[in-house]
Nucleic acid binder design. Structure first.
Lengths: 189, 189
DNA sequence: ATGGATTGCTTAATAGGTTTAAGTTAGCTA
DNA sequence: TAGCTAACTTAAACCTATTAAGCAATCCAT
């Protein structure tokens, strides 16, 4: 009766990979157990329940994405930084659709506060250092950028832009131009 | 053996209401059947399967939201129209969280093309008539606005802004100011 | 109005997923 | 090496989804 060597980390990693392959919705305790050649009940020694698995994948994805964003921001400023940062989001969603979907589940406030989501805000704030915005405009701009990246990528993934002929890459690029312009000319209160 | 008078429309409506009450994720064929005092199997005469129910709710929500957006746009132009339009999205998400969540499921291309999603794009295009944008800038701006509304509302709903003290209403208002400014000064290619 | 067909629902059955409790064994630790 | 603990299995209860088969209510035609 060989042991599979399960840990919460290994399970989370496997669940994330599985999500990218078969879709986040289809990641079940049973499917995960099958992947390890183990009975479903075995997972409950390492993980609280199915929701716990989902949350762990979401946290993993948030952390991975924050790492990438931080790397993209290093040594860049202004529009250069904006473009690099924005593309990290878009590329991650394309490369890891399951992980990206996982990031959209609602986390309870404490979990959220302890997650890499906080780092995302900080990074977005760092991005804005290249522009001359003081509070509270800075916070408003952060929220706007964050929301925009999120929503744009989501809509693109859902096929929301497919019914218009124009290339999404071109639109995206122009959107970043527009954002850069807006951040340089943020309207006064 | 009294009949419950089920129809696809009635089921869809009930599913939408149920989604707003208990969350879209928790809308199951069984729960829906319980609400009508009927066995789960009864629903399969009116609806293909569980996914069919979800899609119907999504389409209902898209149509409702498009109706509201159209009403908000009537008789308004420029920033006035922009604000009204944007608030329709935000308010709908708050008022109907389950329906709003339903709108995020991925629809296959044909379903999407036949849905009110197309009307959303048209309405956004109408909104832009108050600003002087020619193609392809117009399409780019539509996508940007659409993505921004979507993403902002989502992040707010998920609590993504809660860790910063500033009021979300104020940020939202200033974001609309910024968008108006951007649309009036769209950067040249 | 009444017979027959259609439709709307129930019953019954299969298949999977989730989760808990109880049992067994592997492998560390004293 | 004896025994403890942690990792897994077995077993069982419960829920959801879905299909097939049956029965009853209503519609329609004569």
């Amino acid at each position: 009766m060989a042991r599979a060597g399960l840990t919460a980390e290994r399970l989370t990693q496997a669940a994330a990979d599985l999500a990218d392959e078969i879709g986040f919705q289809n990641v079940t305790v049973s499917a995960l157990a099958r992947g390890f050649g183990v009975k479903p009940a075995a997972l409950y020694s390492h993980v609280k329940d199915a929701q716990d698995v989902r949350v762990r994948v979401a946290l993993l994805a948030l952390a991975e994405l924050a790492d990438r964003a931080a790397a993209a921001l290093a040594g860049r400023a202004g529009k250069d930084a904006l473009v690099a940062f924005a593309n990290v989001y878009r590329d991650y969603a394309k490369e890891h659709p399951g992980r990206y979907a996982a990031m959209q589940i609602e986390l309870d406030p404490e979990t959220l506060a302890a997650s890499a989501a906080v780092r995302h805000s900080e990074l977005t704030r760092a991005l804005l250092r290249g522009y001359e915005l003081s509070e509270p405009d800075q916070t408003d701009a952060i929220r706007m950028l964050h929301g925009l990246f999120h929503g744009y990528v989501n809509l693109e993934k859902a096929g929301g832009f497919r019914h218009t002929p124009r290339e999404v890459d071109a639109s995206w690029s122009r959107t970043l131009d527009a954002l850069d312009s807006l951040l340089r000319n943020w309207p006064p209160a």
